[in-house]
């Protein structure tokens, strides 16, 4: 009687082949393989598959490719560079909206000014949410997977997902840094905080894993 079933063993085969499996899981897998001829055959076939995929020899490019590429590059050099039409349209629309709002604001009374302020604030809030909607969706999606994996008791997967989230936050942070050389004070304070919390969470998951082991 071993600790894992065939479905779980299958999930671990690639990591085992690559030598990335933790000692705990490797022990479980070896115990399963020693008593399951089907999974042993699958493990062996998986090795053959990866070996075959990795040993594809390089093909020689077709004759005349360098000349054809050089000609294509020369043609591309003569074409006018394409500009972002959509961006120009958006910029023109934004400029028009700003000019219109400014004109109204300057010529009308206090009630209209209050209304304009409200519209401006609502607009800013909308833009803020729109800019971050992809992030929110990503965060919820990852959280759902992490919670699901935790409920299944799949601590290795939980750690993988947490690692994914850490990478995502790093990617966002570097994107923010690229956007602005000197980011405004107080912007995105949650990014750094989340990372710290994440490390703590990861340590906690690892701790739980050790406790279970």
């Amino acid at each position: 009687m071993t600790g894992i079933d065939c479905a779980r063993a299958e999930e671990l085969l690639s990591d085992d082949y690559e030598g990335r499996l933790d000692a705990l899981f490797r022990g479980d897998l070896q115990a399963h393989l020693s008593s399951c001829p089907g999974c042993r055959a699958l493990r062996s076939a998986l090795e053959e598959v990866v070996e075959d995929l990795r040993r594809v020899p390089e093909m020689a490019p077709p004759a005349g490719l360098p000349e054809r590429v050089a000609a294509a590059v020369a043609r591309a050099g003569k074409e006018p560079a394409r500009r972002g039409g959509a961006f120009r349209f958006q910029a023109a629309a934004a400029a028009l909206a700003i000019a219109g709002t400014t004109a109204l604001y300057a010529t009308r009374g206090p009630a209209l000014r209050q209304g304009a302020r409200f519209v401006e604030r609502a607009g800013n809030a909308g833009v803020y949410l729109m800019e971050r909607k992809d992030r929110l969706v990503e965060d919820v999606r990852i959280l759902r997977v992490v919670v699901g994996a935790a409920f299944e008791g799949r601590l290795d997967r939980v750690n993988d997902r947490v690692e994914d989230y850490r990478r995502l936050l790093e990617k966002r942070k570097s994107a923010e840094q690229k956007k602005s050389e000197a980011p405004p004070k107080g912007s995105e304070p949650q990014a750094a905080g989340s990372r710290g919390e994440l490390s703590a969470n990861r340590r906690q998951f690892n701790f739980v894993e050790h406790q279970c082991g």
């Binding site: 299958e10 699958l42 998986l46 990852i142 995502l168």
Partner: peptide, 22 residues
């Protein structure tokens, strides 16, 4: 795509080919 997704898809792809081979 996330790292964990690459890992699981890589394993599933290899397993599928290994099962077909068997």
């Amino acid at each position: 795509i996330p790292l964990g997704t690459v890992k699981s898809r890589l394993n599933r792809g290899r397993l599928e080919l290994a099962k077909r081979l068997l």
